[in-house]
Design a protein around this nucleic acid. Structure first.
Length: 500
DNA sequence: GAGCGACCGGTAATAGGCTT
DNA sequence: AAGCCTATTACCGGTCGCTC
């Protein structure tokens, strides 16, 4: 009986896998989540109790896939990988076309991505993207998603929480158009819904229909406590229009030039490592800070004149970028310390020098890891939450407050210089050659949260504790960006500078 | 060839017990 | 009560090796 039920789900997974170009295990995960389970194994356990569980509907399957697709890029996340074009040949072209059309509805196309970057040269506040559908224009409403509600609340624009269903409030909203921009009277409200249920938060700028076409992607952000709507089309989203509102591009050009000139004193040639006899991961960064005359530090702010954070890497490295280290807010977390965390969820150390330790060197992403730990973003409570799951039991373990994370992210990365070095051995001594630099500025916090949801930003536990004793290791428990290739998702525009 | 889990080297700040 | 010492915690800088 159970076998048969599982077979049905597996069959559905195979079909979905083919339709959406997923690996088997990914398709299974999608089916599991669309059925309300956390993982395939979890679904299996649920079927034991409830063998007649229906197959998930296509709409919920699509929702899961949509949830795991990035709003900013045309790639799939950790959960859903795009297969190589090469092994696509056997798939049905019609299905492919339909799939592409439905995905394109949400994702920015190439031109729109360029316009997003252009906007972000001028204004870096939190933002959301909405693709205007036929229904929105027809009914004259835009649904305010959770991040949009939060953005309006944070900037004293509108509070949907205290709004009474059916009461319509009006605020002026800055709407960009072909001639520049206008302040447009805009309605904010929750419609009267069923009893015991709050109406979905909505807004609509008066006369928006006249100035906008269906399927336009709009960029919603805030500026000096006013909501701003920028349709991402060429004639509207111009430098002239943006500059007239937000002023000329803010830059740290001088400080950056100063840094580049300092690095050029020793770039493009081999310089001896600060620890030449031994190869250690941190040397590439420590040597750079030494050359620049900076103290090797563990300060939590940026390295160079508190304004530019330096990140050095070996050119051979393709590993995750450490964004910043931050332990959870213990006073609001069920787990009360790192030690508590390690001893509760750690595994017995296999390391020779740490016999009798519980280690936890693991990455926590949006899907459960081998310890059953995963992250979720709770926009209502304004927290990033680490859950632990065994079977169908899911419990909160640790919590980071938005406020703290936002502070850390902005404090640490106002401007970041990612410096690439080659490494070589000369006469038995290690040397570095710093020769390339990538510059990023002002990370976008809403994007940070979105990337957590997508599994692109993850949290690493990096430590261990002696079970009955005081021995410990701690390499810094940190939020990290899965791969350097996602830098532009978090930071928007990136500038590459050659140092040779 | 990239993803992923596991893992490496450090220092600064702070709390609390003990001595003076 | 001031000062000192030590234990503890929270940050800093990263890569490696196996699998799919």
């Amino acid at each position: 009986m159970i076998k048969k039920a599982l077979d049905m789900f597996e069959g559905k997974a195979i079909i979905v896998g083919l339709d959406y170009e997923l690996y088997d295990y990914q398709a299974k995960l999608v089916i599991a989540q669309a059925s309300g389970a956390l993982t395939w194994a979890d679904l299996w356990r649920r079927l034991l109790n409830e063998p007649l569980l229906p197959l998930p509907e296509d709409s919920s399957i699509f929702r899961v896939i949509e949830k795991h697709s990035s709003p900013l890029g045309d790639y799939r996340t950790a959960l859903i990988h795009r297969k190589n074009k090469v092994d696509n040949n056997m798939s049905d072209d019609n299905i492919n076309c339909q799939e592409q059309v439905s995905n394109k509805r949400f994702l920015p196309n190439g031109n729109e991505k360029e316009l997003i970057k252009k906007v972000q040269k001028y204004i870096r506040n939190n933002y959301s993207l909405v693709r205007l559908t036929f229904t929105m224009l027809d009914k004259s409403t835009i649904d305010a998603s959770k991040p949009i509600c939060k953005m309006f609340y944070d900037n004293d624009i509108f509070n949907y929480e205290t709004a009474i269903d059916g009461d319509i409030s009006y605020r002026n909203v800055m709407v960009f158009n072909r001639d520049g921009h206008d302040l447009i009277k805009t309605s904010f409200y929750r419609p009267k819904a069923k009893p015991h249920k709050k109406g979905d938060p909505r807004f609509w700028p008066w006369g928006f229909k006249k100035s906008i076409e269906q399927d336009t992607l709009i960029y919603i952000t805030t500026f000096e406590n006013t909501a701003v709507i920028i349709p991402l089309t060429e004639p509207v989203c111009t430098d002239a229009h943006l500059e007239s509102v937000f002023g000329s591009i803010i830059s740290h050009v001088n400080l950056v030039e100063e840094l580049i000139n300092e690095i050029k004193q020793f770039s493009g040639r081999w310089v001896k490592s600060c620890n030449p006899s031994k190869k250690s991961p941190k040397d590439v960064g420590d040597t750079l800070e030494l050359l620049l005359g900076l103290d090797i530090n563990n300060r939590s702010d940026a390295d160079y004149k508190s304004s530019i954070e330096l990140k050095a890497k070996r050119s051979s490295s393709k590993t995750a970028d450490t964004l910043f280290s931050q332990v959870p807010d213990w006073n609001v977390s069920p787990i009360k310390s790192v030690r508590d965390m390690m001893l509760t969820y750690g595994y017995l150390s296999t390391h020779k020098q740490r016999q009798g330790y519980k280690d936890l060197f693991v990455t926590v992403s949006n899907i459960p890891n081998p310890q059953g730990l995963f992250l979720e973003v709770d926009y209502d409570a304004e927290q990033v939450v680490q859950y632990h799951v065994i079977g169908s039991k899911k419990e909160v373990t640790a919590i980071w407050l938005f406020e703290k994370l936002q502070g850390r992210l902005i404090e640490k990365h106002p401007n970041t210089a990612w410096i690439i070095a080659d490494e070589t051995l000369i006469d038995g001594e290690y040397h570095f050659n710093y020769n390339k630099l990538e510059l990023t500025s002002n990370p976008i916090f809403s994007q940070f949260l979105s990337l957590i949801e997508q599994g692109v930003v993850r949290y690493d536990w990096r430590g261990g504790y002696e079970i009955d004793g005081s021995g410990r290791v701690d390499k810094g428990h940190a939020f990290r960006l899965k791969s350097p290739k996602f830098r532009d998702e978090l930071f928007g525009e990136i500038e590459t500078v050659s140092l040779i």
